[in-house]
Design a protein around this nucleic acid. Structure first.
Length: 465
RNA sequence: GUCCCCAUCGUCUAGCCUGGUCCAGGACGGCGGCCUUUCACGCCGUUAACAGGGGUUCAAAUCCCCUUGGGGACGCCA
């Protein structure tokens, strides 16, 4: 059995978007699950639209997602000579020919065909003219059908009369996409091509080239696309498209890959998969064949699951990075990673993203003098009735030798027993006093993380409000 | 217009290939409840779907055909 070699071949005309990322993930999974190789090729033959920034963005995104590729990255633009070499072979072997029809001629043909209810295509005028210049076209078979077994869609077949003699080499001598893809995939030893649905129509054409060259035809698979909530192709107006935007919004890469994998792939009822599990369980049988809608709500749930499981120290590192992005490196240094590592565990069950966690961490990282208060909460809970109680609690805390959760619990228990009240009576007032808000992690754990000094200062300031 | 593809709860999906165990299962969301010092988390319950029509069959979500709806492609772009 030969080793599986799959690939991802984006054109660097923009950042890596969610759809591309999913295709890359499936392709990566296909190779990794079989102990094969996963190659990366940048299809930068469109010099007008390709940019270095886009290339970098794609590579960065792949790295962030953990989709490591094998071997060197292949740049299609550097392989023009080889493409031309293959085209020459095709001409020599009679599988391709020159055509000097003008663009206007061909457009006219198409229009005519369309009018007559046929598929618009080049009519093969120059097929047997034996020309020696112009564009080079593939001499496609006139009869029969070209079919293949798609890894996700099953058997697909197209009548050869539906396909025209596609251009292999433009009049300026450069190779076209379909030719370049075939040559590169062949030369790279690619034997599994998993790509977007939009390439289904190209596949039979490409198979024709493989056959003309006498090369082994890889197995193809076409994954359906991702739709926006309106069921239209996912685009900018649906919000975040770029993989790196998700990074900026504080989502975890493993949540992105998990969610993306489940969008179009399944393994029974399982929802959560680590990368290792996916590698272990992935098969193309699990791939669905209908387009799916990207559901941000479910994605956030997945991310929340990973936030809960994440190592606090890792989260702390991310929190530092995000804070630095917000207030600058210098300012951010005021809050240490160790500090965040203490806060993170309290916030893990309630944060949807790193950004969200940073927001919730706010009361923990500012000094009492900068603590913002929720006005309505202050009005409601810091009353003439509760303030004296808070004052007394602060007084009792003063004498606490050990500022720990059990000790604090003991202290409050004593307080409510002495006063013969329910804990409820002072819980929210205390919360508002020390966090400024009505929602926060557990009171005692919050106090411990805040520390005795800060906790006391906050309660005392609250009494003055 | 022509060709190709697709079609199960609002959404992601299991089941379909190898008809019966499916008056269709799971997850997100919604709703209700429990837990609880708040919010979350967690737990329990509930809501909601086989696009329509014909066949085939003792039996169809599952097989066949048609219709409808959606998408994609039809470039000297990739």
């Amino acid at each position: 059995m030969t080793k599986i070699v799959s690939r991802f071949a984006p054109s660097p005309t923009g950042f890596l978007h969610i759809g591309g990322a999913r295709t890359a993930l499936f392709s990566w999974l296909l190779a990794r699950s079989q102990g094969g190789e996963f190659r990366l090729r940048i299809e930068d033959t469109d010099r007008e639209r390709s940019t270095q920034e886009a290339t970098d963005a794609i590579i960065d995104s792949m790295r962030w997602l953990g989709l490591e590729h094998d071997g060197e990255i292949v740049f299609q633009s550097e392989r023009a000579d080889r493409h031309v070499e293959v085209i020459d072979q095709l001409i020599a072997s009679g599988h391709a020919y020159y055509c000097d029809c003008s663009k206007e001629d061909v457009d006219a043909m198409r229009e005519k065909a369309m009018k007559e209810g046929r598929k618009p295509k080049y009519d093969g005028t120059c097929r047997d003219k034996g020309l020696t210049s112009g564009v080079v076209r593939l001499k496609a078979p006139l009869e029969g059908a070209t079919g293949y077994k798609d890894m996700v869609k099953g058997f697909i077949s197209v009548e050869n009369t539906e396909m025209d003699d596609m251009i292999l080499r433009r009049s300026d001598g450069t190779p076209t996409y379909n030719l370049a893809v075939v040559v590169d995939d062949h030369d790279m030893g690619v034997n599994r091509v998993l790509r977007g649905d939009d390439h289904v129509n190209n596949t039979p054409r490409q198979i024709l080239i493989y056959r003309a060259m006498g090369w082994d035809v890889p197995e193809f698979g076409h994954v359906p696309m991702i739709l926006g909530p309106d069921k239209k192709k996912l685009s900018k107006r649906h919000g975040a498209l770029s993989v790196m935007e998700y990074e900026k919004m504080g989502y975890l890469p493993e949540a992105v890959t998990n969610y993306l994998a489940r969008l179009g792939w399944s393994h029974g009822d399982q929802e959560l998969f680590t990368m290792d599990e996916m590698v272990e369980l992935f098969t193309t049988d699990g791939l669905g064949n209908s387009p799916s809608v990207f559901d941000l709500t479910k994605f956030e749930w997945v991310n929340g699951q990973y936030m809960q499981k994440a190592d606090p120290d890792r989260l702390a590192g991310l929190l530092c990075d995000f804070l630095a992005r917000e207030v600058g490196e210098e300012e951010a240094k005021a809050v240490t990673r160790e500090r965040f590592a203490l806060i993170a565990p309290l916030l893990q069950p309630r944060a949807k993203s790193v950004l969200d966690m940073l927001e919730q961490a706010r009361p923990f990282i500012v000094d009492v003098s900068f603590l913002p208060y929720d006005e309505a909460a202050v009005q409601k809970f810091l009353t003439a009735e509760t303030k004296p109680m808070l004052e007394e609690i602060a007084g009792r805390m003063e004498g606490l030798a050990e500022f720990t959760e059990p000790a604090l619990e003991e202290l409050h228990k004593g307080f409510i027993e002495d006063r013969d009240i329910k804990f409820k009576v002072i819980a929210q007032p205390l919360r508002v006093a020390i966090t400024g808000k009505t929602q926060s992690p557990g009171l005692f754990e919050t106090m411990v993380v805040l520390g005795k000094e800060q906790t006391l200062a906050r309660i005392r300031r609250a009494v003055e409000l």
